[in-house]
Simulated assay, not measured.
Amino acid sequence: MMQIGYTMMTEQAGPRELVDHVVAAERAGFDFSVISDHSFPWLESQGHAPYAWSVLGAAAQATSRIPLMTYVTCPTFRYHPAVVAQKAATLQLLSEGRFRLGLGSGENLNEHIVGRGWPSARVRLDMLDEAVGIIRDLFSGDQVTRHGRHFQVDDARLWDVPATPPPIGIAVSGPRSCALAGRHADLLIATEPKASLLEDFSAHGGAGKPRIGQMPVCYDPDRDAAVARAHEQFRWALGGWRLNAELPLPGGFEQASAHTREEDVAKGIPCGDDVEAVVDAARAYAEAGFTELALVQIGGAQQLPFLRWAETELLPALREL
């Protein structure tokens, strides 16, 4: 049975609201939760970008059962990998073992703020490869010195180390990232139901490990309102990862999605209150081989109505997958 998770979208709600939402998701019976880690929203209409790690700390104290996870953090530009290791170890302690560290090679939208430029995807994956090694070394609790191609670590050590380190997930989008994840990750992260990604992951050492997908939905009893909101806030998602990783500001996403129509969004995102439409979309992930699926409800103000609907109607249907 595929586990169903809830996404705290930092681009569409403030920090206190995000904590309230994950508390309600735990109460509704979701199996796990994830959180985006951004410094900008994709579109100005989304309107938010609080610091994900502060929200996670509050969520760890406000909840007692639901697992927490970054989806995903980039440990190579805004954050040095040694800093990410310390944050992740602390979250694992605060949550009493409920935290998983999801990592990725990043998006220009978030990482450009530190002024280090934006290299090619190949270089970004090399940086991620090196960063994951540093993080794992620090999770041991030993003193670590590393002088690599991209990162320097001098006599670093974590003084508060959980007995069980946070599992590390790596986001994939193609063969090179799948190979990296197969070598280094405890679980795979993806946003598309592509069986080929899971096959590549398995071929490089990922066989038998969890595979987590993510899927947007837009619940509303009024389907037309749901379609309009999905278009207003989530039309950027139809651009694909190759484009989305490169654009530096929300204005770029506005321009790139200027000709995306409401009907285009409605074809790719289940909108309204049709349970079967969501189940059909989720089935593609189950059939591809994903073991977990995190749902994204579009629209910050609609989270609590969505969670009530999910508890009574959607989750029971999805558990049949």
Rank of each mutant, 00 (worst) to 15 (best):
E262D: 11
E276Q: 09
L243D: 07
D273H: 06
W236S: 02
F234N: 02
W236E: 03
E287K: 15
S257P: 06
K267F: 06
L249V: 15
R283A: 15
A230K: 10
A245M: 09
W241V: 08
V296K: 00
R242A: 14
R235S: 10
H231K: 09
N244V: 00
A266R: 10
C271G: 02
F290E: 04
E287C: 09
E254D: 15
R261N: 05
L247V: 14
T260M: 12
A258Q: 13
L247Q: 11
D274I: 02
V296T: 01
G268R: 08
R261P: 02
V275H: 08
A286T: 12
L247S: 06
E276L: 05
E292F: 08
S257L: 12
E263G: 09
P248I: 12
C271Q: 00
E246S: 14
Q233V: 09
P250T: 06
A282R: 03
G240M: 04
G268T: 07
G268V: 07
Q255H: 14
D264E: 09
A288N: 11
N244T: 03
A237H: 05
A288S: 09
H259D: 14
F234L: 06
A266T: 04
A277Y: 00
P248D: 12
E232T: 03
V278W: 07
A258R: 14
A256M: 14
F290V: 12
V265W: 07
A230N: 02
E276A: 13
L247D: 03
F253W: 12
G252S: 14
A286C: 12
Q255T: 15
V278T: 13
D274T: 00
F290D: 10
H259Y: 13
E232Y: 04
L295H: 06
P270N: 05
G268F: 09
L295T: 09
P270G: 02
A284R: 13
V275G: 08
D273A: 15
R242C: 02
P250H: 08
E263V: 14
E287D: 15
P270A: 05
A281L: 04
N244F: 00
L243V: 11
E232K: 08
E276C: 03
G272Y: 03
V265T: 07
A258G: 10
D274L: 01
K267I: 03
G239W: 06
E246C: 05
A282K: 02
R235K: 11
A237L: 01
E287G: 10
F253C: 12
N244K: 03
W236T: 02
R242I: 04
